[in-house]
């Protein structure tokens, strides 16, 4: 039996801290990220919900032309980009905590964390591309479905 662990493999109170020296403490930065992103997300998400659900006709007013009108302003593009990145990484890092807590096998943990990483990378790429490549006035679309600033052809 080693001097620093008992038969259960638990570190005894006197054993030195097991954090590898010199490396970045990722768990600490994850912990800080959850709090920093949380504070900003309160503003971003409440703003998002207020504009989309409370103002105007609320949910009944949301359609292609509504989104066209919003993304015509760089303000909302930046707003949504920040919300996308902060919320998705916050949520996925939170889900990683749940995997650590509930998945008991190393293989299960690996698979689940791999799936999380894959979905985050895919959706961040997709969501960001959507915001910046969006064309509010696609050629050939019926004018009544488009924002009022689209040229009538």
């Amino acid at each position: 039996m080693s001097s620093t662990t008992d038969t259960l493999g638990l570190a005894s109170p006197r054993s030195p801290r097991s954090t590898p020296t010199g490396g970045v403490n990722w768990e600490k930065w994850g912990w800080i990220y959850m709090r920093a992103s949380g504070v900003i997300l309160v503003v971003l998400i409440f703003g998002h919900l207020f504009v989309n659900l409370m103002l105007g006709d609320g949910i009944k007013g949301i359609d292609f032309a509504f989104v066209g009108g919003k993304y015509a302003a760089p303000f909302w593009q930046i707003w949504d980009t920040a919300m996308l990145w902060l919320a998705l990484i916050h949520g996925a890092n939170g889900m990683r905590t749940l995997v650590n807590d509930y998945a008991t096998h190393v293989v299960t943990q690996r698979v689940l964390k791999g799936a999380l990483l894959f979905s985050v990378i895919t959706l961040l790429t997709l969501g960001t591309l959507v915001i910046y490549t969006f064309d509010p006035c696609p050629a050939g679309a019926p004018a009544n479905l488009l924002a009022s600033f689209c040229p009538v052809v």
């Binding site: 989104v67 949520g91 939170g94 959706l123 969501g127 969006f134 696609p138």
Partner: peptide
Amino acid sequence: FFFLLVHILDTALIRVSP
């Protein structure tokens, strides 16, 4: 979290067609 996964996909439809 699960809502957000779906929500990014449904918003992506603005790149498909009105």
